[in-house]
Structure formats: C-alpha cells, structure tokens
C-alpha cells in the first residue's frame, strides 16, 4: 500500500465557507500541497449526517449565496487549477441531487471535471439511478460504509465494484476525534478483502486531526480522509488575507501528510 513519504489524503472543504474568495484560497492550498483527492461538499440546509462544525459551516456557506450551479463553477475552477494532480469529489445529500435530476446532476458534475460522487443518503440499493447515471458520464460513485455495516451489506455494496469506497472509522457523525485501535484495523480488513480482488481503493476517515493518526493508517489504506479538522483550522484564527489562508491550508495538509 501507500508507503511513500507524502501520504495520500482526501481533504474536505466547503465552497463559500467562510466566503467565496476564502474558499477558493482553501481549495488552492489543498491542491498546491499535493493532496490526491479533494472532497468538495455542496452545502445542504439539513445535513443530518454531519456534526455541528460542518453544519455551521454549511449554514454559513448558504448564507454567503451558495447555489448548486455555483458549486459546479467552483468544481470547474478547482479541476482546472494549473499543475493539479488532485481528483475532485463532490459530496452532498440526496435532496440536492434529486432536485436537479440525477442525470443532470451527474452530467453537470462530469462537465465540471469531477471524478467522484459521495452521496451517503443514496445507498446502493436505493440510489435513484445514481450509479448508472454516473457511469454513463465516466464518474465514480464512492459509497460510504461504517463499522456496523454488516458483511452482507458490504457484499451488496462491493458487488457493484466501486472504484473507491469511503470507510467512516466509527459510527456517528463527523467531527469527533477517532482513537485508532484493533477494531479499526479489523474493519479496514473487512472492506479490503472485498476490494482487493478487483482493485478497488479504500479511503478512510472520520475524526482525523493529527499526523500520528495519518501515520498509523497510511500503510493500511489507499487514502486518509481529513474533514472537520480543516474546516476548524480555516476560521481559527481568522485569516489575514487569501494568500495567508492558502499558505496556512497548504501547510496544514503538508503537516498531516509528512513527518
């Protein structure tokens, strides 16, 4: 697995949080630092799978004028940043996808240059045609699984051969620190045993905020996901300029990825 000195990270961010120019700086920082994946969350009014940090950030982004069409503009800009080797994922809730129309949402995402779609409340067996529509556009649906996901559901989910699976290391919501233990490793192995036969990749996260956690996971999985920790770092302390923010984010990502 990934033993390179710079860990493969998937870094989460929210367009229009805390405002549009700042969020553009955040995205530039993530891409410049060399993250393998960027997870761009389209804010939803009722993000019931997210904790207070991300919910507050989503509300702020909506108040700043986020619209789905502007979200695709944002994705396009990030995907086209010069020299970028970062894959772009769009994460959001079913309501936004369904309201636009599943096919149109996928077409717009593909046109903007996205690689993956993470829609946790459109599960594999109730997905409103998401996987089919995504495939038709060359997009990859990334299912989210948790430690309490049963073997039979893991079988069902991986039977569609997803290119990538998102493993949330503990049950619950985003934004609480996860302690890594043997049960995390067992969960990772349960997923990997189903992905390796066809070459599917595994990214894991939920509560990752320290280099030590990334270091522990790095040899086990393909990518490590960083979510709320960056959202918190963006506002604290408030950035003095977009340049400073971009710098801060790039440093934050680099510190998590290397010793």
């Amino acid at each position: 697995m990934n033993q390179s000195t710079f860990a493969s990270l998937m870094v989460h961010m929210i367009p229009f949080f805390p405002d549009l120019p700042s969020s553009q700086a955040v995205a530039r920082g993530i891409v410049r630092a060399g993250a393998d994946h960027i997870e761009i969350q389209f804010p939803f009014s009722d993000p019931s799978a997210d904790g207070p940090t991300i919910e507050a950030a989503c509300n702020r982004a909506l108040a700043q004028g986020f619209r789905v069409s502007k979200g695709f503009d944002f994705v396009r800009e990030v995907a086209n940043l010069p020299g970028s080797r970062t894959r772009v994922h769009i994460m959001t809730y079913a309501s936004l996808v369904y309201a636009r129309g599943v096919q149109k949402f996928c077409a717009d995402a593909a046109e903007a240059g996205a690689w993956g779609l993470i829609i946790p409340d459109l599960p594999t067996d109730n997905d409103e045609g998401l996987r089919e529509a995504a495939q038709a556009q060359g997009l990859h649906v990334v299912p989210v699984v948790v430690p309490t996901t049963t073997d039979s559901r893991l079988d069902l989910i991986t039977s569609t051969s997803p290119s990538m699976v998102y493993g949330a290391l503990r049950t619950g919501i985003t934004g609480t620190k996860t302690e890594l233990g043997p049960e995390n490793e067992a969960f990772i192995q349960r997923i990997l045993s189903r992905l390796r036969p066809y070459g599917g990749q595994l990214a894991v996260g939920f509560g990752i905020q320290e280099r030590a956690q990334v270091r522990a996971l790095q040899p086990l999985v393909d990518s490590v996901i960083v979510g709320s920790a960056l959202v918190r770092a963006i506002g604290n302390p408030p950035a003095t300029s977009e340049k400073e923010l971009e710098e801060r984010v790039a440093n934050f990502v680099t510190r998590l990825a290397t010793d």
Partner: peptide, 17 residues
C-alpha cells in the same frame, strides 16, 4: 424530494434546500 431519510413532498427551493 428526499429529506431526512424518506421521499415525499417537501417545501424546497429549486436547489433542493
């Protein structure tokens, strides 16, 4: 729309908010 785990009729804007 699909909100809070079920599909039904909701008061939403055109983005699904």
């Amino acid at each position: 729309g699909i909100v809070q785990g079920y599909k039904s009729l909701f008061l939403l804007n055109e983005d699904g908010q």
